[in-house]
Structures are given as structure tokens and as C-alpha cells.
Design a protein around this nucleic acid. Structure first.
Lengths: 211, 211, 211, 211
DNA sequence: AATGAATGAGAATTCATTCAT
DNA sequence: GATGAATGAATTCTCATTCAT
């Protein structure tokens, strides 16, 4: 269980990524750290700068505005998430088993990275410029990856073909969200193994072909 | 299914009672209406006043501050909720059946009044002065009512006596919250009947005495 | 030592005055009472009304504005002061002895009525509309009375004629003020007898004719 | 007689020291200048900013709030006062002669710097956060310096040892205040030499040992 | 004689953002 | 690569005052 804390840099988790300028890193780390305790709107740029040990102006060297900073922090998490997801399903036979692993991996990501989950599920959605951000592109990349898995399952004959693959994807993502959200909001611990098992049971019940 | 929309006045102000101080009503209605679309923190007093068609200063004639306004809006909803709850369980025999009805009534209240649910579950909790508000007193009144029902069930022998009644109450309220929250946050429709059935099934499983 | 407290009505001291409407009296009494503890600028009309047990609007029935209220409260005190002064010097022989009594009376008025002293010495002077108020007319009446006394002394030959009577008046008033002010500001007790003796000694030294 | 007018910069900012942050200086100068004519409470931040030729927001970059600005202005004056006091007593033989000089220096400071005197004697005392300000620390530093002088006098045998040194200090400071206050409030000129002579005469009468 | 309802102007303070260096 | 100085627009809240009833 490798978490992305605000103290560890993310490079550990995303070795392929280019190293940021130290100032930029400090700023992103500062925001991550602040997001542990309060919501984005009530974090000020002054606070971020102070926490990072840089000046406010530097934020605007590296980020277009405060929300862009949030999006880049999110993107970093998403990079990790995608890399893990793609690794996690390798060496597993059968689309349904891969799907199970992916769901586990997704839940686990939320369980280990509250800040990430909160950004993705709560902070970012209401504001339209999110949908033109890089982060949003990465989310699309991820969901495409999930979609491809589902389609492979359909081809294989392990997933029902009478429901559109995109609808199945919707169910899966909705279910994960639904299950993790209260824990994220009220700071419960999320029991990855247990929760993802339950999820798979109820999801697979509806989408899998009986063998 | 009688909802408390922002256009209909709340029962509290309904005919029979002297509906004086139109300004106060307009302000509360305005806030309810704005809460449909955005969260409390990002609603400004200027916006509330504009929507209500009054001046900002008037807000402070009737409410101690912006959060007091929120609390009074919440209190109005709670008044309705409590009145309904107390009516709804009447004429029902057996604590467990009453409890089932109360759960239904609670879920139904959330289903019909998103704004209410959002205030109660998301807006109000983090701010300490909520806990000294009238609204909080009403919540306590409501949860006491629920507790009494549980205790009656214990006396009757229909609810287990080996779990403290207060713990049972906690489970019930937690379960309702857990089940309704995603719908409230993401604006899904909440299917009252279906959802409350599921809730009762899993809750009663744990708390009811086998007959 | 008869003080004008905020509880006793002033009529006791100024029997000839017409009785105010009860609301008006309540308002003036309220302001007097509030002035015991805080300065005029930081007393709000809402506070005055609340203390008086009337509505804010009523203030504007009886007073042109907040400062007018202050001026009328001051005028009431001045009425008492003038009445006393005129009484106090009666039955005393010799202008210099009358003057001594008047100084005593003046100091005594400050000693017993902090609120009065504060209004007169600290609150009203900076604001120009004071100088067109009735209160200011009363002050002029009082200082004319003092001037007349001095002139009588000059005529009598007990007060020097080589200094203009108005200059002498200036010295007397300045000295009283000078002596009482610290007590008024820092809430020392003012020892009327002792203080007025000292004042007379130093003043008379300069203005009296040697006999 | 070097006065600290609002046009001359204070020593603190004088050549030699790096006079950076012109905005901060402009704001402090602006407040000093406004305090010549009106009291602190009736000076608005907007007015200060306008006078300084900066925006209101800048005030809050350099000062915690409006009162902190006042305290920093006061502290600047106190810096000068302390420096002068410590210089002024040097080269003087005998604690009593030093004390006489210190009293003169103190009165002179008030005489030359009305604004300073007004802040110290009238504006800051009522507000509790003054007592946790740097300015208050400097006042304590100054009064400790005075106390040390008195104690030296006691040791020397030139000041009575049967009155506690702190009580003597109280008398001295009270007397200075008492003597200067009317002039400060009503804008009389303070005659430093004459006034400090009088003060010393009456004070020394009570505290000095007959030789 | 008194009130309830409402207001306009302005108060201090906050915050994301810009720009010359 | 980073900063110090400065800002404009907004935010919550206050207060003396008015007016129809």
C-alpha cells in the first residue's frame, strides 16, 4: 500500500515523469498538504505560498491561476493512477479478472489518497474550465482504458453484449464513487479489499455472462 | 409527495399564521433558491439581497449573520420534517413498523428537498456555531424522537435489548446518510420506496428480534 | 451633593422646566446612561433605542439626528447648571466672594456629573453644528453671567480693571477645565473643595486688587 | 528642538538604514498626517490610502489591521523618544539632575509631537490588543529606564528610600501626563522649559532627600 | 405618540492576480 | 528562476436615517 503523502514526492510513483523545477514542486506539495485539512476554496494563495516557502508571484509563473494549480496537482495523481492501473492488470488472464483488479486498484487509490479522491470527486467538477484541462484529458484516457477492457470482455464472451459497453462503464464508475464517497467526505477509513469485493459482486451480477 | 420548493412558502409561513415581515420571507426564499445551484460559501450576501429584491442591510435586521440565515432556513425545513415524522408514525402499530415508516419519511424528505439535505449533510457541520443554533436543537429533538421509538421497540420486545438504543440510532442515521449522500451530491434522483426498503432490510436484519 | 444620575429624572433639579413626553425622556435617559461607559461615537442608535425600550424611529420624532439628541441632553444639564449657579451666588456679598462660590459650583457640577463634563469638554466641540445648537446658546448665557460678575467686581474695585474682563473670564474657564480634565478622562475622583480652593488661590492672585 | 512632523521621515527610516517599501512609509506618514486633525476612530482606511496615494489593500500587506498600523506609528515615535531619553541623560552627574533632564525630555517630546502624545495618552489605552503590541513593550522599556534612574538615586542617597521606587515612578509619569494633557487635547502650546521646571519643583519636593 | 419595515452609504478586511526587476 | 511591491474588485457587516401606517 504505497500512498502519495504530501511529504513524499510523487516521482517515486511515476518514474517516467520529467522532474519539475523545485519551486513548482514545492507549490504543488504545499497545496496537497493543505488539502488534507481544508477545502480548496478556503485555501488562499498566500497560504499556499507561505506553506511552500515561496512568494505568491511564483505560483503565477508556473500555473495559469489557482484552479490550474489544482488541475495540475490532480493530473499528477492521475498519472500515478493510470500507470498503476495499466501495470496492475498485466499478467492477469481474462477480462473479468482484469476488471476486478482494476476496480480494486481504483478503490485502493481512493483509500490511500484522500486528497486525490476529494479533488476528483468534490472540488473539480463544478467549474467548467476543468473540462478543458489536461487533467480531464487524463481522466478520459483512464476511462477509455476501462472501456477497452470491457469491450475485450464482450469479445471474449465474458461480458454481456446486450448492454452498451459505455453504459457498463457508467455503472462501474458510479458504483465505485457511490461506495467511496461517504468515507471520503466523513473521513471514514475505506476497507479496500472488502469494499471492492462487494462492489464486484453486485456489479458482476448484472454484467457478467453466466458461464 | 409534497416538496418544499423555493417558490412555495413553507408551512411555517402558511395561511392561518400571520405572514408578516415579507422581507424576511423573501430573504429566506432567496437563499433556498440559490442553494439549488451553488454551495453556501459561494453565495454572496449581495446575491441573496438581489435575488430577494431587498437590500443587503435587511439581511442583518433579521439574521445575526450569513450563517444564521442558513440556520434559520434549515430550521424551517426541520420544522416540517419533525411535524411530518410525528404525524407519519401515528396510527401504525408496532415500533418496528413505525420505525420503518420513519425511515421512509426521512429518506422521502431528502428525496423531495435536495436543498434541505445539502444544508444538513454538507453545509452546516463544519462550522461550530451550528451547534449552538436553534436548528441543532431541532435536530436533537428529532433524534430524541427516533430514540424514543427505538426504546419503545426494546420494551415491546421487537428490538434487541443487548445493543444500546443510542448505538442503534447511530446505525440508522448513518445508514440513511450513507445511502442518500451520493444522490444528493451528484443530483441523482433518490427512489424513496426502493431505497428505504433496502435500508430497512439491512438495518432490521441486525437490530430486530426474530419472532 | 446632589448628582444627576441617569436614574433620577432631571426635573428635581430644574423644577421650572416643562415635562417631556415620556418617550423623549426615556431616550435622553438612555443616552445619559450609556455615556457613563462609552463615548458617544461608539454608541449606536439601536443601542439607545434598546436601552430606552423604544424603537429607533422614535428618536427621530424628537431629535433631528443623533447629535441633536446629544445636544439636548447637554442642554438639560446646562439648565441645571445655570439655575444652580444663579442661586448659588445669591446672598453672598462682594463680587470676589461670589466668584469664588461660582467656581466652586462649577467644579462641583463636573465632580458630580461626569457624563455632563465629558459631553461638554470632549464630545461636542469638534463638531460644528454644536455651535448652532440651543446648548451652545446656554453656554453663552452661562459665560455671560460669569462675565457680568467679573464686571461687577471691576466696578466694585475688587477686580483689576487693567485686564479686559473677557480675558479674565478666559483664564477662569481655562483653569477650571485644566484642573478637572484629567479626572474626567481617567476617572479620578475630583475633590471639589480642595480643587476649587487651589484654583481660586492661583486665579485671584493674578486678578484681584490688593486691598 | 527637532520635531517629527508628518513631512519629515522619522529617524528610523533615515539615511543609513535601507528605506525600502515606500508604500509602508507612505501609509504611516499618511496616518500621522491625518491624526493632526482628527481622531483615529473617525479616520477611515479609505482616507489613509487616499492620503498615502496607495490602495487600501496595501495597508493590510504591511499591517495586521488598522490598529496595528496605529501601534506601529506609535512604536516609531517611541523609538525616537527612547533614543533621545537615553542620550539626553548622558554626561549629567547625579540621578536627580538626570531625572530633571528626563522629565524635560519627556515634556519636550509631547510639546513637539502632538500626534505622538495624542496616540499615547488618548488613542491606544482603551483597546486591549495595545497591551500585546510592540509599542507597549517599548513603553515598558522606557518606564524601566526611568525606574532604574530612580533606583540609582535611591542608592546615591539623593532620592528617598522610604517610598517604593515604582510608586515614585507613578507619581512622575502621572504628573507629566496631568500637566500636558489639556494642552494636548485643546491644542495649547506646551512651554517645555516652564512646565518641566514647575513639575520638577513639585515632584522633587516630595521625593528628594534634603541635603 | 409610536412602530415595523426598509434602506443607502460606507466601514474594515480579503484575495487572486500582475508586473517590473 | 524568483521576488517585492502593489492592486482592483469583492466580501461581510454596520449604522444613522426615513417613511407609511
Amino acid at each position: 500500500m504505497v500512498s502519495i503523502s504530501n511529504t513524499s514526492s510523487l516521482y517515486v510513483n511515476s518514474p517516467g515523469e520529467k522532474t519539475h523545477a523545485p519551486g513548482k514542486t514545492k507549490i504543488m506539495t504545499a497545496l496537497r498538504s493543505l488539502l488534507e485539512d481544508k477545502e480548496f476554496v478556503s485555501i488562499t494563495t498566500a497560504e499556499i505560498a507561505r506553506t511552500a516557502g515561496v512568494t505568491e508571484a511564483l505560483i503565477y509563473k508556473y500555473f495559469h491561476d489557482k484552479r490550474d494549480l489544482l488541475h495540475q496537482v490532480l493530473a499528477e495523481y492521475l498519472g500515478v493512477m493510470i500507470a498503476r492501473a495499466e501495470t496492475d492488470v498485466r499478467g492477469i488472464k481474462g477480462a473479468l479478472h482484469q476488471l476486478r483488479k482494476l476496480i480494486w486498484s481504483h478503490v485502493n487509490m481512493y483509500a490511500d489518497n484522500r486528497v486525490f479522491a476529494r479533488i476528483l470527486l468534490l472540488e473539480v467538477r463544478n467549474y467548467p474550465d476543468y473540462f478543458s484541462s489536461d487533467a480531464y484529458q487524463m481522466v478520459k484516457h483512464y476511462t477509455n482504458f476501462l472501456l477497452a477492457l470491457i469491450e475485450k470482455g464482450v469479445e471474449e464472451g465474458s461480458i454481456r453484449s446486450d448492454i452498451p459497453a459505455t453504459a457498463i462503464r457508467q455503472v462501474i464508475l458510479g458504483a465505485i464513487e457511490h461506495a467511496c464517497l461517504p468515507g471520503i467526505i466523513f473521513n471514514y477509513a475505506i476497507q479496500t479489499d472488502e469494499l471492492s469485493d462487494q462492489l464486484c459482486e453486485s456489479i458482476f451480477n448484472g454484467i457478467a455472462c453466466p458461464d
